[in-house]
């Protein structure tokens, strides 16, 4: 017999993983809905998922590769850039989606109970599609340029996991903050745009760091994605391992994740009243 006790005098900071697991079907179906609806009534359909990254890649190749002629570790620039874009695209997608996710689901939130974490989590699942497409781009370009992945590829899962956690942590923070402060709806697009340049996606971090004072380097690596993108590319293409500063990034990711969960749980209690 299921038994439920709700007591106002007892704080509830614990994340009920068992419950979250019990709601896994909801999680899948919300992700499925997002995917189905995303290209509904478009002429090109799923092709858009390829066109968008291709366009970004082309712009990067022209601006950074040709005009600015950045050092691409001796690898053809498009391959260099697409390896940076892989992790970044995923991160920016989840960021864009989860900020508004709870507001977008407010009709549900006001009418039925489910662990609210399912909403931002399902956005992280939807992002896997774009991530998969980025991986296809990487594979195609590697074959085209006849470049084999480096032996570091065994570390790739670690950096993929870090990318997921970092996207989730910022996503959870933003989804909870946006409920109370709609200001964050305007902050997110700016964050994504700014982050693209503040993350070593189209260039190598070391080329920037050598022109920065020590404090600015620290600041640079407080960007959770700086270390992740660097490590992601390193595990695919080899070269210099991520600098010791990258550990700042990793620490930031973990701190953001845990604090995000804590803040989300706090807001969750009154979510239906304030959304």
């Amino acid at each position: 017999m299921e038994k439920l006790i709700v007591d106002a005098s007892k704080p509830k900071w614990r994340i009920n993983l068992k419950e979250l697991w019990a709601y896994k079907d909801l999680f899948y179906i919300l992700a499925y809905r997002d995917l189905r609806v995303r290209y509904a009534q478009t002429f090109l359909g799923l092709a858009w998922a390829f066109i968008q990254p291709l366009a970004t890649l082309t712009i990067f190749t022209v601006v950074f590769g040709k005009v600015a002629a950045v050092d691409s570790m001796g690898v053809p620039y498009p391959l260099f850039a697409v390896c940076g874009m892989g992790a970044w695209t995923y991160f920016s997608f989840v960021l864009n989606q989860s900020g508004n996710s709870i507001i977008g689901a407010q009709e549900m939130v006001k009418k039925i109970y489910f662990p609210r974490l399912v909403i931002p989590l399902s956005k992280a699942v939807v992002g896997f599609v774009d991530f998969g497409i980025a991986m296809i781009f990487i594979a195609v370009l590697m074959i085209y340029y006849q470049i084999a992945p480096s032996a570091n590829i065994v570390f790739l899962p670690v950096f993929v996991l870090l990318a997921i956690i970092s996207a989730l942590s910022v996503g959870i923070w933003l989804s909870a903050l946006t409920i109370r402060y709609r200001d964050f709806q305007h902050v997110v697009p700016f964050l994504v745009q700014f982050g693209l340049y503040a993350t070593p996606v189209g260039y190598q971090a070391k080329d920037v760091i050598k022109r920065l004072p020590e404090w600015a380097t620290t600041l640079y690596y407080l960007n959770p994605m700086a270390g992740v993108v660097e490590g992601f590319r390193w595990s695919l293409l080899g070269g210099d391992p991520p600098s010791q500063y990258a550990y700042y990034s990793f620490t930031v990711v973990i701190v953001l994740f845990l604090s995000g969960l804590y803040y989300f749980k706090r807001v969750e209690r009154v979510m239906a009243d304030i959304v």
Binding site: M1, K3, V6, D7, I112, R269, V270
Partner: peptide, 19 residues
Amino acid sequence: SRITEPTTGRFEINGRVSS
């Protein structure tokens, strides 16, 4: 239905609920 939390007091439910 657990959509919102009470400010005071408590309640217990025995059994699977649908609201």
